[in-house]
Design a protein around this nucleic acid. Structure first.
Length: 746
RNA sequence: GGGCGAUUAGCUCAGCUGGCUAGAGCGUCACAUUGACAUUGUGAAGGUCACAGGUUCAAUUCCUGUAUCGCCCACCA
């Protein structure tokens, strides 16, 4: 019999992948035809739209491993008679990609303005396409049996069209609107961010106690404590608790805001914490979310003193203009001290809000942005969750999702970027006019002209659409510059990729069955997909959300390039092969948990992969070429071994169907290694020892063993597709099996 | 401040609706082995299942509380 290599060579994995790819059976339409042809029952399609990785970098281990969950489900369902659609894609990742690419430009000494909006978009598109190609190779490398003929990029015009339709419809229903509110401005990314795009970090700072003298009696003063003295230039009140006896006599009076020399009122509000600081708080509606709310309640004036770049500006003393906030803070403290108005200063640690992408400090500023009121959408989503129409694994994450929906706030969906889907809106007479009219309800275009001393050409109306509307009365149309938050479009991923609610694929493959992704994007992504899916299609986009575990460095810390503890997928593939990595991940990365990457464990799994190869090799090598016809014709009796194997298959199937991949992986390992190899093969080895080639006992035993091997290959295939397919192909070459293992039915 | 989760062998973790001597991988130790597999086999050591109560015929498993750790959310100056 032919000589097979003594050990499994994982370098052949790419060849195996191309066999699957060529078969075309990753296309569910073709798989359906195949099943019909072979007269199998064609079950209902099984669809997963895969999470599109950011097209601005290579995939990391987490991405790659994540796909092994999609793939185990896909392969299993395919072998169970379902046309399977694993729909891949790549994400344009607005902020992050723009920031990465801008840095590239910087290194060349260029800015995005140098290129101009159009050219910039073109270049960054190319950049993403190149990365997408790398990413695609890595997806294939892990064995992902996705339908790459249906792959989508989130900025594909076909997809954008559907996203725009959603926008129009939401706008017309009043769910989307423009509003002037306090927003999270990242001065480095130069865009507004939604709350969820920010994080909190404990940073060192100061706590300054500043005296605000009373207007009536400059000898008396109220001391306020603040971590951000520079915002005092925009103070429009001092607030105290209504029951605070220390200050009740001052409520309704005025204090003189130092430096700015402005009179501001002392107000009473329940929200003020008497215990904190001095119990009196300065109110800066323009630069603090809390103060903004407070300002709204008390109708306070809003004075902007910080711009979108994080620099001081506005109606402030000349000497502070253009300063960074920190510089201004220092300068102010110094002046206050000189004037005897600084009571004391403490060093402290406090939580600051930072940009999730670049970790710069967020500046809360007032700005006009597009909002989506998600409240009603969240309520619908909650109903579905509570009805059990969407389930999250692990269950703890389900509770977190419910909590998220119950406390949801309007979602800021506009970003001041160039990289993304431009919001399809035109303003008659300009954007400024529209915003002004919005703020000054009941006033007219003429009032705007008078107030701003400009002449406008337009009505202040909006036009929805990508193309510039016709100017009937000679009005000027200004195009919206902002783009959508990336999640506004990726939130529609399960149906945009299927051609939208009218698409042919949509009718066949929606709603999808599963959503599988990492824990960190449950709120960003799944939560949005459920809401948007319900809105556009009236159905939840998927039944189950499976939250994958996170891969950590071997010491249990987060992997990051800057720490130098990250491991490249390529290294693992080269050293151990994709199957070994997959098997490790199935066993160790339970839903919602963390999995420290231990090479010894991957090595252990590699050993098992090799064991599969070797046991198969042993069986194949024991079959004499002359025995092949007899063995293939031999009728297989339901022996004890076969009955037990069938039971094992049922058991593993159940584990897969319940998403208990760790138990599935453990079972196939235990059964194949310690039952099939250690016991049965040893047994049969003894039985056929010394028997004549072609004798009945040999044929019978080897046929049984071969049959058992095939059953095992099938049930192991979803977990370790490469080695099982390699073996299968060896069988095919000897006429002991046919076609691909991937298409076999269990 | 609110929510979620964890605490089981040296290490990393399983143990899903409570039930015999609590499991796996890796590691350790002993023995075997040129064996299809130096990527092998056989066997062993090693756990009062965080702690305290409760429910139960029976709890690692359910409930309550405590401690420690982790994650997420939140506008506290």
């Amino acid at each position: 019999m032919e000589q097979l290599p003594k050990s499994y060579n994982s370098n052949t994995e790419t060849e195996i992948y191309s066999l699957w790819f060529k078969s075309g059976l990753t296309d569910p339409d073709k798989m359906g035809e195949y099943l019909k042809e072979k007269e199998y029952e064609v079950k209902k399609p099984f669809t997963i739209t895969l999470p599109p990785p950011n097209a601005n970098a290579n995939l990391h281990l987490g991405h790659v491993c994540g796909y092994s969950f999609h793939d185990v489900m896909g392969r299993y369902m395919r072998m169970k008679g379902h046309p399977v659609l694993l729909l891949p894609g790549k994400d344009h990742a607005g902020i992050q990609t723009e920031s990465v690419f801008t840095k590239h430009l910087e290194m060349e000494g260029k800015t995005k303005e140098d290129l101009g909006r159009e050219k910039f978009y073109e270049e960054i598109y190319k950049f993403c396409m190149k990365n997408a190609e790398n990413a695609r190779e890595q997806e294939k490398r892990i064995g992902l049996s996705a339908d790459f003929s249906r792959e989508f990029f989130t900025l594909d015009p076909k997809l954008t069209k559907i996203v725009y339709e959603t926008f129009y419809s939401m706008f017309e229903e009043g769910l989307i609107y423009r509003d002037k509110r306090i927003i999270n401005q990242c001065p480095s990314c130069m865009t507004a961010l939604a709350d969820i795009d920010t994080e909190h970090e404990l940073k060192r700072g100061i706590f300054a106690y500043i005296k605000y003298p009373l207007v009536d009696n400059p000898d008396e003063y109220i001391t306020v404590a603040t971590t951000r003295p520079e915002t005092m230039l925009g103070d429009t009140a001092v607030a105290v608790h209504p029951k605070d006896k220390r200050y009740s006599k001052y409520v309704g009076k005025k204090v003189l805001l130092p430096i700015a020399d402005r009179e501001i009122p002392v107000i009473a509000d329940e929200e003020v914490d008497m215990e904190l600081g001095t119990g009196a708080v300065k109110v800066t509606p323009a630069h603090s979310p809390v103060d903004f709310e407070l300002g709204q309640r008390h109708n306070l004036e809003i004075i902007n003193v910080i711009n979108e770049k994080g620099l001081m500006e506005g109606d402030i003393p000349e000497r502070f203009k253009g300063m960074k906030t920190v510089e201004c803070s220092k300068a102010l403290v110094k002046e206050l001290d000189e004037q005897g108005l600084l009571e004391r200063i403490e060093n402290t640690e406090h939580e600051v809000t930072v940009c999730e992408r670049c970790r710069s400090n967020i500046e809360p500023i007032i700005s006009n942005q597009w909002y989506l009121n998600v409240k009603s959408l969240a309520e619908e989503a909650l109903k579905e969750l509570k009805k059990g129409n969407v389930k999250v694994y692990p269950e703890g994450q389900q509770k977190a999702l419910i909590h998220f929906y119950e406390n949801i706030q309007p979602w800021c969906i506009s970003r001041q970027l160039w990289w993304g889907q431009r919001i399809p809106v035109w303003y008659s007479g300009g954007k400024k006019l529209y915003d002004w009219l919005l703020e000054n309800k009941g006033r007219a275009v003429q009032d705007f002209e008078k107030e701003t001393e400009t002449k406008v050409n337009g009505t202040g109306e909006l036009h929805l659409g990508e193309d510039k509307p016709e100017s009937i009365n000679g009005e000027i149309w200004e195009k919206e510059e902002d783009v959508f938050d990336t999640w506004f479009s990726s939130g529609q991923w399960p149906f945009t990729t299927l051609g939208g609610p009218d698409g042919a694929d949509f009718k066949k493959y929606y709603p999808t069955q599963m959503m599988i992704h990492a824990r960190d994007i449950v709120f960003w992504w799944s939560a949005r997909m459920i809401m948007m899916g319900l809105y556009r299609t009236g159905q939840v986009p998927f039944r189950d959300i499976f939250v994958t575990g996170m891969i950590l460095a071997d010491d249990g810390s987060k992997m990051s390039k800057s720490k130098g503890n990250s491991v490249e997928p390529k290294e693992i593939f080269e050293r151990y092969g994709a199957d070994a990595l997959r098997l490790w991940y199935y066993s160790d990365a339970l839903p919602g948990s963390n999995a420290p990457l231990r090479e010894e464990k991957i090595k252990g799994n590699r050993n098992f992969v090799n064991k599969i190869w070797n046991a198969s090799r042993f069986i194949i090598m024991n079959i004499n070429e002359s025995e092949i016809p007899k063995i293939s014709k031999e009728e297989i009796k339901k022996t004890e071994k076969i009955v037990e194997t069938e039971k094992h298959i049922v058991k593993v199937s159940r584990y897969i169907e319940k998403y208990q991949f760790n138990l599935g992986a453990e079972s196939i390992r235990e059964f194949f290694w310690h039952q099939v190899c250690d016991i049965w093969i040893e047994e049969i080895k003894r039985e056929i020892q010394g028997q004549e080639i072609g004798s009945q006992i040999r044929v019978e035993r080897l046929a049984e063993l071969l049959y058992i091997l095939k059953l095992n290959l099938k049930i192991m295939h979803p977990f370790v597709p490469f080695v099982t397919e390699s073996v299968w192909q060896e069988l095919v070459s000897l006429n002991l099996a046919s076609s691909l293992l991937m298409e076999q039915q269990i």
